[in-house]
Design a protein around this nucleic acid. Sequence first.
DNA 1: TTTTATATATGATCCGGGTCATATATCGAA
DNA 2: TTCGATATATGACCCGGATCATATATAAAA
Lengths: 233, 233
Amino acid sequence: MSENSCNTKPTNDCEKCGQKMTNAICSTAPEVWKLLDQVKQKNIFKAHQVIFYQDNEPMGLYIISSGLVKLEVTSESGQNHTLRYLGPGSALGYRSLFAHEKYQASAIAIEKTEVCFIPKNTVMEIFQQYPTAALKILESLSKDLRLADEKWTSQMDKDASERIAEALIFLQDHFEHQNWTRKEIAEWAGTTPETVIRTLAQFEADGYIDQSQGRAIRLVNKQKLIEKLTLDR
Amino acid sequence: MSENSCNTKPTNDCEKCGQKMTNAICSTAPEVWKLLDQVKQKNIFKAHQVIFYQDNEPMGLYIISSGLVKLEVTSESGQNHTLRYLGPGSALGYRSLFAHEKYQASAIAIEKTEVCFIPKNTVMEIFQQYPTAALKILESLSKDLRLADEKWTSQMDKDASERIAEALIFLQDHFEHQNWTRKEIAEWAGTTPETVIRTLAQFEADGYIDQSQGRAIRLVNKQKLIEKLTLDR
DNA sequence: TTTTATATATGATCCGGGTCATATATCGAA
DNA sequence: TTCGATATATGACCCGGATCATATATAAAA
């Protein structure tokens, strides 16, 4: 709990935060930082801990200071699907807040993750006062929506191995995290762990990746993998 | 072009519009209507005409006065997928506008459709001036995002006949339009026309629907169809 | 009415990939 | 270092539903 001596108090300084310019809320204006410092609640979650649960009522939103979070839906049949991964600087839980709906997914820390919780009324006040903040969050919601639409269409247009290839590239491009499990890739790519394992074996045989060091997946020839994706079509 | 004698002039009155309270832009405030009246451009599209094309640059957004529009993605392989249907009162083309991206989908009129085009800078001015408008559009974008997420997860969790049943119920619940083709249902439900046809034949045999009058699909026992969906799980 | 384009219907075929069973490897805890 | 839990690996099986071919029905136009 105290490995980071600067961040243990809930009222530490937004001005000193490395994420203060990475999202719509925190980058609004310097005068907002004082407000946020008063109301925000900083928390640390260990790997596999749940930040919020599907079907619960949102009471604010979270900003991720460090770490990695997945948004996971569990269907009635018990299958898990990963909607999005969120890294440092990202806002978390805002879709349900703005839609006035319950959380549609659970937010689970993949690795040790630090978040700032900002209460609902503070969030709304900021958007009332700073229209540019609203336009910025509109932008990121709009991009999320495009990614969600693409997820559905590629579920139909692309076969499992193409989706897995795209997952490898996307996850490597967007996150520091290295230790993706076959199950995590499957739940993100819309397939099963077995299919991921078989496909990775093929990718290794084709010289795209290397799996000889433990469970790690090293992209040996990312460029060739990208070309394969475009040439296939 | 002149079948509707009240709506032929581009500067007709927002105040008299039946949709003036149904979306974030038009319902912002009475004083906005004067501004909109000056800049908006009213257009009528016939069935099958294209309002905007995938990959083109948005120059504003549209409000649907009447009719029905589908947002359709065409993949590299030539397959069409319907992301969303939009009816009267809905805003159209705002996702790409706020994301500062090109249109990801084409907007196609399903039936005769009347739209008001509102230029980009006017839209941005309104959101700058009226924070509540921004919060309202945030709400509808957030709901769109949930629907998109659900579309992806149900593509995996539910089989084709379940998705087709849901499509029938959803489309009937949300739109006046009655003449859905098997192809339209397929592209919305994430399957093929053949599978829709076979499934509808089964639904008819099971007493859920009636197809004896031409090509129309009449929901004979909607409640039983809903029950079937929940009992299956 | 007849014609013609398009939508609907139905059968045959086939395969990607999900599922289940089982074996082995890896990593962290003791 | 050993052990146990969990992740990875691989084979066998099977089925939903896509695809292709072809026939028929429907609606709108001539």
